[in-house]
Amino acid sequence: MYSEKVMDHFANPRNVGEIENANAVGQVGNAKCGDIMKIYMDIEDDKIKDVKFKTFGCGAAIATSSMATEMVKGKTVKEALELTNKAVMEALDGLPPEKVHCSVLAEEAIHSAIDDYYKRSGISLGVEHNCSGCCADCSKKNI
C-alpha cells in the first residue's frame, strides 16, 4: 500500500527528536484524530539551521514528517513557507488517498513552527493552525 520511499522514511525516519532551546516550535493535529505532529526548529538569520520532529500517528504521518523536515532543512524561512503537501507527497512517490491528510498535516506543522518563530519576533502570519479536520468526528463536531 505504501511506496518504497514512504517505507524508507517510516523505517528510518530522518530528524526525529527535540531541539533544546528551539526558537520555533509548532504542533498540529490532535490525539482524537490519531495524529499529532510537533516540529522544532533552530532558525538563525531567517535560515532553518536545524529541524526535528516528534509524531504520534500512522506510518504515513511519520514518513511525511520525516520528508517534510528533510525538505525544509537548510532552507530560508520564506522557502519553507512555500512547502506544500503536494510537494511532500511527490517526494514520497505518492500516498494512498486516505493518507493525503498526513501530508497536509506535515505542511501545517512546518507552517505552524514558522508562525511561532514570527510570533516570537513580534510578527504574526495571522494563520490559524488547527487539526486539518482529518476525521469524521472532528469535522462533524468541529472541535
Binding site: C33, G34, G57, C58, E98, C134
Partner: peptide, 22 residues
C-alpha cells in the same frame, strides 16, 4: 486504529467499551 481500518474513526468496539479515541 482508524488508520489500520481504513476508516476515519477507531474501532467501534473499543469506543463502546469506553476507551477515549487516542
Amino acid at each position: 486504529s482508524a488508520c489500520a481500518s481504513g476508516s476515519l474513526d477507531p474501532s467501534h468496539v473499543l469506543l463502546a467499551i469506553g476507551l477515549p479515541h487516542e
